[in-house]
Amino acid sequence: MEARLYALQRLSAVVMAPLVVVHLITIMIAVRNGLTAEEILSRTQGLSIWAVFYVVFVLAVAIHAPLGLRKIMVEWFGLPRRGADWIALAVCVLFLGLGLRSVMAVTGASIGAAIGGGA
């Protein structure tokens, strides 16, 4: 199991490395005239390569980050491994939920607006 988690941590990192580069460049460009919803959404809206980009990004980070937090919980905060496993799993679910929701929000605004309006 431990070896599998190691592989997941590293492979998710490999997947993310190019995505992070693109994300950093995007940030540099996006902050130039101040962050506005219009600017963000005009780039991401509709079914585009950005939707795929962000879905993959969210999936990878939802694996990568909880595994890192798990080690910190065990090594620095002295949590038992089992406890850290469950918390990491909860963080993974949280990141998946919030992350995919935000991807939906910025890429499929019409669907998003319908859900938001209906709520």
Binding site: M1, E2, A3, L5, Y6, K71, R81
Partner: peptide, 11 residues
């Protein structure tokens, strides 16, 4: 070496 206390703990 690959178990819970094994190599994947190394940073």
């Amino acid at each position: 070496a690959l178990g819970p206390g094994g190599c994947s703990n190394c940073h």
